[in-house]
């Protein structure tokens, strides 16, 4: 019985990390209608920033603040200088552009930091373990859980309770109308994209000590993040949360029950959901 409880907790932790990685993606898609392929690169840049910042300042805690800001600034630049230019060309162009940026950033990271894996050490207070059932549980995994839950609440609050959320959703629906009402739509889009990028950066910071920092980390997370978005329904925070947790638990228990299929768990789940609900669990019908 205890083995199952431990696996369940593993699943929740990994699921929440996955949610953290996809949260910015969900935000940007939900509010701007842009599927940001560069998100995975922002996540990777966040992790590499953490490496360098820890080298310079010696403080991991500072990275939690500075790295997301740094990535957010890159995001702002991408939105202002590049993405806005192709907005009128339609979805395919936005997608291709963000993919191109992903491709370039992945190369730039290799250029600056080299190809071999870099070590980020978490602060001592996070490196220990806490008693859990008859054994112990690593503190860092609980820290991942904590950060993800905080992000979840902030995100849900912004999207559903504040004026910004209402404005942005209105702007997606009718750009001109919101403009006439005296809201600077361009600025709002800029803000949303930066925050989305910063969230990717934050995920990178949290993942750096846990998953290690190496050039392939962006591409490897990209597919997982997309599967979460497809299952959860595009742009739905709660959908992403549910999908991420489902994938986390599926991997934890799946390897105990049907390890042969571990490679395709998420794709099978995706296929099943799509046959049943093409728009995803929480998506509005396309």
């Amino acid at each position: 019985m205890e083995a199952y409880a431990v696996q369940a907790v593993h699943g929740v932790v990994y699921g929440m990390l996955l949610f953290l990685v996809t949260s910015g993606l969900t935000l940007v898609f939900g509010m701007m209608g842009v599927l940001n392929m560069a998100h995975a690169a922002f996540y990777m840049v966040g992790a590499y920033f953490t490496y360098s910042l820890v080298q310079w300042t010696g403080s991991f805690w500072l990275c939690l603040l500075l790295a997301p800001i740094g990535v957010g600034i890159i995001g702002a630049f991408v939105e202002r200088a590049l993405l806005r230019k192709v907005h009128t060309f339609g979805h395919a162009h936005e997608l291709m552009l963000t993919f191109g940026i992903f491709y370039i950033l992945a190369e730039v990271v290799k250029w600056i930091w080299g190809t071999y894996p870099l070590t980020v050490v978490a602060p001592d207070v996070l490196n220990g373990s806490v008693p859990f059932l008859s054994a112990t549980y690593p503190t860092y995994r609980l820290f991942i859980l904590l950060v993800s839950v905080i992000v979840l609440f902030i995100l849900a609050f912004i999207m559903q309770k504040t004026r910004i959320g209402i404005i942005v959703r209105a702007a997606v629906f009718d750009n001109e109308m919101v403009d006439i009402l005296g809201v600077n739509v361009q600025l709002v889009f800029l803000g949303v994209f930066s925050i989305g990028s910063a969230l990717a950066g934050l995920a990178g910071v949290v993942a750096a000590p846990f998953l290690s920092t190496y050039p392939g980390m962006g591409l490897e997370i990209l597919v997982d993040a997309f599967v979460v978005i497809v299952i959860g329904g595009f742009g739905s925070v709660w959908g992403a949360l549910l999908a991420a947790l489902m994938i986390g638990e599926l991997q934890s228990f799946g390897i105990m029950l049907i390890p042969e299929l571990a490679l395709v768990f998420q794709f099978l789940l995706m296929a099943i959901v799509l046959v049943w609900r093409p728009q995803g669990l929480f998506g509005e019908s396309a």
Partner: peptide
């Protein structure tokens, strides 16, 4: 046990090994 290449979280596997 065989895990997918580029597995991100090894905790489920490690727990199975420990068990």
């Amino acid at each position: 046990i065989f895990h997918p290449i580029a597995t991100k979280d090894f905790a489920p596997y490690v727990s199975a090994i420990m068990a």
